[in-house]
Design a protein around this nucleic acid. Structure first.
Lengths: 177, 177
DNA sequence: ATTGAAAAAAGTCGCGG
DNA sequence: CCGCGACTTTTTTCAAT
């Protein structure tokens, strides 16, 4: 039953290194674009579109995965359809910002499902969170029961999303010119 | 060559409606969790983990897709590996906020690759953008050449991300109790 | 609704140009 | 690097329970 819990994304081995800046040619870019749009695009479809056979497409994809350019394949679910229509952006400042508090803050962040993104913005003790919840009441509970359980939080400022206009996971690689 | 450009994600038909609140049982939740973690998890793997055969798993996934709960399957690429390491959050206010300007703003947003997310936050003429670019110079060019090309922008405030601590696309559905 | 088998499609890989 | 072709795995369908 716990194979489902695995970290996955390593279904064909991965790279942890951040370098190995390999060139991406036009074909790679089109493959990336297609798979970012629809991960289930078959190799035959890609091959036909690129006027190639399956082998080069297969090997390019394999290479993109191996080099960690393609990090993983995921299913995207509709937040509204699963009862999570409210998005909140939230600034959090830590009062006590010794290494231990910061380390613990980061660790805890990773375990809280409602927090989908977390960044440091303006200094080592300033965090910026994207939070996805059911409604305002759920957000209130999230703050009280989860966020403030983390020791050392000084200030908090929440911005509630009224409407989502655009949301994509697709990135267009920079031209390597 | 242009099949790659298609909007896709409709590879098995989709729903546009926002309702049809169907109950998700434990099995559905585990399937969703697994596919959000790794879209390539095979049905046999899922079936084994759930102590079922492939068919019910297949039918459940099909249903989740049909109802739009699973919106699409995508490949996630590593921004750093494709030369886009800088994330900027940006508040934009419109000066002129008649319907026509707002409509055009929204339309233009959708065509700009650097903008991965856009929300309305604090009123109808207040937008919040997530922007992904190569470096500060590229951000400057983005603002000058793309953002301010949109007529009617009054104020702008940018926050630069120093470090990404968490970033997931996986959502945990609310308990249907 | 679930099973198990079987057909169809997709992915994988060695070999030759 | 690419194409061909054989082999493996996965997806999809379906008759029967």
């Amino acid at each position: 039953m716990n194979r489902l819990q695995n970290d996955a994304a390593l279904h064909r081995g991965k790279q942890t290194g951040k370098n190995t800046m390999t060139k991406l040619d036009k074909t790679d870019l089109m493959i990336l674009q297609a798979l970012q749009n629809d991960a289930k695009t078959s190799m035959k479809t890609l091959a036909d579109a690129l006027h190639l056979s399956k082998t080069p497409v297969y090997e390019r994809i394999r290479r993109l995965e191996k080099e960690g350019i393609i990090k993983r394949y995921v299913a995207l679910v509709d937040p509204e359809k699963i009862g999570l229509p409210l998005v909140v952006f939230c600034n959090v400042s830590l009062a006590i910002h010794d290494e231990e508090h910061i380390r613990q803050f980061r660790e805890t962040i990773g375990t809280i499902d409602e927090i989908t993104e977390c960044y440091t913005i303006g200094g080592i003790h300033d965090f910026f969170l994207k939070v996805v919840v059911k409604d305002l009441q759920a957000y209130d509970r999230f703050v009280l029961e989860k966020l403030t359980k983390i020791r050392g939080i000084a200030k908090m400022q929440s911005s509630f999303v009224l409407n989502e206009i655009k949301h994509t996971t697709a990135l267009k690689p920079v031209e390597n010119g």
